[in-house]
C-alpha cells in the first residue's frame, strides 16, 4: 500500500478539471442472452488517462470495446444505452463506424503487428484514410509516429524488416505507433502490458504518460500499480456494474465503495 501511495503522490499533482471527451449513459451489452454490462454511466475527460480496473470478467474490456464499436464485429453482441464522442452519439445510424474508429483508435492486449514491414505497419492507417498526398508526407507521418511511440531510435535502420520480428515490448509500441499514425482523438488500450516483461512494461507506461499531452487515453489494466502509476481517473468495475469512479488518488487512498476497498487491498480479484 505504501508503495502505491508514494506513486500516487508523484503522479497526481497535475489532476485538474478537464472537459469531457466521451460520455456514456446507461450502457448495456448482451452477448446472446447473457448480460455483460448492466448500465454503465461514465464520463471520460479529455487528455487524461482513465484506467478501468476490476476483477476478471467484470466487463471492463467489454465496455472499452463499446467506445469504438469493436463489439459490432461480434455477431452475438448487442449494445444498448448511449455513448457520445464530443456530444455526437456514436451509435447513431448516421455515424460512419469506419470514421469513428479512425477517431477512437485501439491497442490490444496481445501485440498484433501485421505480417508486413515496420514501415508498412505504421503506414497502413494513413494509407487507407488518405492522410498523405505523397511519399514524403507519408514518410513524415511514419517517422513522427514512431518517434512519438519511442520506437524510432531502435528501428530507424530496419524499417523494411517485418514487424513480427521485433521483441514483445517493441511490437506493442509499434502497435501504439500504428494507432497514433491516424491521429486519433482517443486511444483505447486493452491491457497493453499484460503480455510484456517488467522492463518493457515500464517503457510502455512512460509512453502512455507522455501521450496524455495529445490524446485522451482509456486503459484497461489488471495491475493496480499500473493504474496508480499512469492514470488520473480510475473506474472500478465489478460483475458488469460500475462500482465506483473517481480521481485515482482518492480511489487508492480512500475509496467509498466496499468492493473497491476489497479489491485494492487484495481481498478478491
Amino acid at each position: 500500500m505504501e508503495n502505491i501511495q508514494a506513486t500516487l503522490n508523484r503522479g497526481q499533482a497535475v489532476q485538474s478539471a478537464k472537459p469531457i471527451k466521451m460520455k456514456s449513459q446507461d450502457v448495456t451489452v448482451h452477448y446472446g442472452s447473457k448480460q455483460a454490462l448492466n448500465g454503465i454511466t461514465l464520463d471520460i475527460p479529455e487528455r487524461q488517462v482513465t484506467a478501468l480496473i476490476g476483477p476478471s470478467g467484470c466487463g471492463k474490456s467489454t465496455y472499452l470495446r463499446c467506445l469504438n464499436r469493436m463489439n459490432d464485429t461480434i455477431d452475438s453482441a448487442s449494445v444498448g444505452g448511449k455513448i457520445t464522442l464530443d456530444g455526437e452519439d456514436i451509435y447513431d445510424p448516421a455515424i460512419d463506424v469506419v470514421e469513428l474508429r479512425a477517431r477512437v483508435g485501439m491497442v490490444f492486449q496481445k501485440p498484433n503487428p501485421f505480417p508486413k514491414s515496420i514501415y508498412e505497419n505504421v503506414a497502413y492507417g494513413p494509407k487507407i484514410h488518405g492522410l498523405s498526398r505523397n511519399k514524403q508526407e507519408l514518410d513524415e507521418i511514419v517517422h513522427t509516429s514512431l518517434k512519438k511511440a519511442g520506437l524510432y531510435n531502435e528501428v530507424k535502420d530496419r524499417l523494411d524488416e517485418p514487424g513480427t520480428g521485433l521483441s514483445g515490448g517493441q511490437q506493442q509500441r509499434l502497435c501504439i505507433a500504428r494507432a497514433i499514425a491516424v491521429s486519433p482523438e482517443v486511444i483505447l488500450m486493452d491491457e497493453p502490458c499484460s503480455a510484456l516483461d517488467p522492463i518493457a512494461t515500464a517503457t510502455v507506461e512512460e509512453l502512455i504518460d507522455e501521450l496524455r499531452e495529445n490524446f485522451t487515453i482509456v486503459i484497461v489494466t489488471h495491475s493496480m500499480q499500473q493504474a496508480a502509476r499512469v492514470s488520473q481517473i480510475t473506474a472500478m468495475f465489478h460483475l458488469g456494474d460500475l462500482a465506483e469512479v473517481g480521481p485515482t488518488e482518492k480511489m487508492f487512498s480512500n475509496p467509498d465503495d466496499k468492493r473497491t476497498q476489497d479489491y485494492i487491498t487484495g481481498r478478491f480479484g
Binding site: N68, M70, T73, V98, E99, L100, R101, A102, R103, G105, M106, F108, K110, N112, P113, F114, P115, K116, Y124, G125, I128, H129, C175, R178, A179, V182
Partner: peptide, 25 residues
C-alpha cells in the same frame, strides 16, 4: 482474429482488411 481487430480498430473497412491484411497473411 487479432489481425482483423487490429485493422478494424484503425478504421479500416472489411474489404480493406481482407485485401491488405488477411489475404496477404
Amino acid at each position: 482474429r487479432s489481425l482483423r481487430d487490429g485493422s478494424l480498430g484503425l478504421g479500416a473497412t472489411r474489404s480493406e482488411t481482407i485485401k491488405r491484411v488477411i489475404l496477404p497473411a
